[in-house]
Every structure is written in C-alpha cells, then in structure tokens.
Amino acid sequence: MKRVAIAAAFFAALLAGWQLLVMRGGFSPVLLPAPLDVALYLQDAWRDGSLTTATAVTGRRLLLGYALGVAIGLPVGLLSATRPFVQDTIGILALGLQTLPSVCWIPLALLWFGQTEGAMLFVVVMGTVWSVIIATETGARNIPPSYARAARTMGSEGFHKWTRVILPASLPYLISGMKQGWAFAWRSLMAAEIYVTILTGFGLGHLLHYGRELNAMDQVIGIMLTIVAIGLLADKALFAPWERFLHRRWGTGAP
C-alpha cells in the first residue's frame, strides 16, 4: 500500500512539474502542450475511435509477430543447445543477428515485401526471434545434467523429456529471453510504423508520425504515453504471472 502511495505521489509530482513549466510560459505550445491538452486529445481520439483502432492494429501486428517469433525461436533454440550442427549454423547466425538493431531490418523488409503487412510482420519477427533463440539455448545449456538423467531413469524420453523437463527446467532463462524478445518486438514495430506508411491499417506509430507532420504536439505526447502504458500493461499481464511463478518455485528473483 505504501509503495502504491509513493508511486502515485511521484507521478502526480511529475504532472504538476510539467503543468508548472507550461504555466511559467516561455515555451511555444507547439513544442510543449499542457498536460490537460494531451488529456483532451486522448479523450477525443478515444471518442472518435482513432486511438482504439490504431491500438488494435498495432496490437494485432505485435502479437502475431511475437507469437511467430517465439514459435520459431523456442524449438530452434532447443535444437541449437543439443545439436552441434544447428549450433554451428543457426546458432552462430542468431548470435550475430541478435546484435543488429531491429530498425536495420526495415530497408530490407521494404525492398522484399513492399509497403505491406508482410513487411511489418517480418520486422517484428526479426526483432523477436534471435533473442528468443539465444535465451532458449542458454537456458537449455545451463540445466543441471542430473535433471535429464533422473528423468530418463523414470522413463521420460523424447518429446516427454523435452516438454516436461528441458523446457520447464530452462524457464528462468526462457522468461527473461521472452521478455527481451517482447521489448525488441515492440521497439521494432514502432520503428516500422513510423517509417513505413501502409494503407492496410494505421497503427500507433503512424499516429505518432502524423502528429509530427501536423505539428500536433499534444497528439505526439498523447501517443507516446499510450505506447508507454501499453508496454507497462503488457509487462504486467504477460510476464508478471510467470515471474511470480518463478519466484514461488525457484525462490529467486524479485517478488
């Protein structure tokens, strides 16, 4: 309860400081809108549906690309941890490409897919998949060998061993890898939406882009706040339950 109060006070102070700065004057409203203007924009955008539509468009792209990235990354990471052939090929590729900022995929995506949903998806998948591969591989490699040995003596082999032992045993690494993958996916999608105009749907990145073109700073800041809020929300909704599970079972990490 005390921590909630501290957090609330901190953000209230932040808003108050912002408001004071605006009231002191000297800043053009084009560069620094008042908090109330931003709130009004968000309210309007919510009412006319542009905010909800954009959020839905962005959310769909993100979830689809992320899910695809994880669906590819998990098995490839597991294979890479156990098959020297996969490690020497895809493993090294992943290690290299993971260091590439995901924005760098955008020119390639545009050339290959044009201004389409495919380009968006490609960028998000490329942002996600490499870090998921690396995290899964690291996780599977760091499992105490006695887990697999104990499981095998009890009759757990093949698919059962992979899904009931190797995968859960590498969970601490997997969760941090999937979290990192999520952060990369989110960043790369925003970059893609700001750079790539496509007609099949305006996402939050597009609203941000047009806010700048129209010198509508209340829109820019409003969308930025929305993006931050979605990021926080996703973290709490997607990963907090898993982190609580880790904490409960392994007795490690923050509560």
């Binding site: 105490p144 006695s146 040995r149 104990a150 032992v165 045993a169 079972r249 392994w250």
Partner: peptide, 9 residues
C-alpha cells in the same frame, strides 16, 4: 542422486 535432482518447477 547426491544432489537430489528434484525438479524445482
């Protein structure tokens, strides 16, 4: 095993 090898999950 010596280290119990119990599954923490």
């Amino acid at each position: 095993f010596q280290d119990s090898a119990l599954f923490p999950w």
